[in-house]
């Protein structure tokens, strides 16, 4: 038995221990289901909801719509401009 086979045998032993200890079948009945994402396909027509997203800043011409990030990007952008951005750029170059 060479070195690789010894490693494989050890791995098998570990794997079998794990399989035995994992309560795989029992867990199948558990109600630990994660969250179902909202359905993306519906019959209700959304044409009338246009104005909610449109807001007054939205021009009628799609070509004029500006892409401005609000939400948490407002804080994130500020943070990146300072320390963090430098750090991540350095890291990126290394990576």
């Amino acid at each position: 038995m060479n070195h690789k086979h010894a490693i494989a045998a050890a791995a098998l032993a570990m794997a079998l221990t794990t399989v035995v200890s994992a309560p795989a079948e029992a867990a199948g009945k558990e109600k630990c289901y994660g969250i179902a994402a909202a359905g993306q396909n519906d019959c209700g027509n959304l044409a009338g909801t246009h104005s909610c997203a449109g807001q007054s800043t939205m021009d009628k011409d799609p070509g004029e719509w500006k892409l401005v990030a609000k939400g948490s990007c407002e804080s994130m952008g500020g943070m990146l401009k300072a320390e963090a951005k430098k750090r991540y750029e350095e890291k990126k170059q290394k990576g």
Binding site: A37, Q40, A53, G71
Partner: peptide, 22 residues
Amino acid sequence: MLSLTVTYPVLAQMVGEQAMFV
């Protein structure tokens, strides 16, 4: 837009509704 917000919920929170619209 609604569908994209479901598929990309974190992005939607980060950029906001208007950006998702565009």
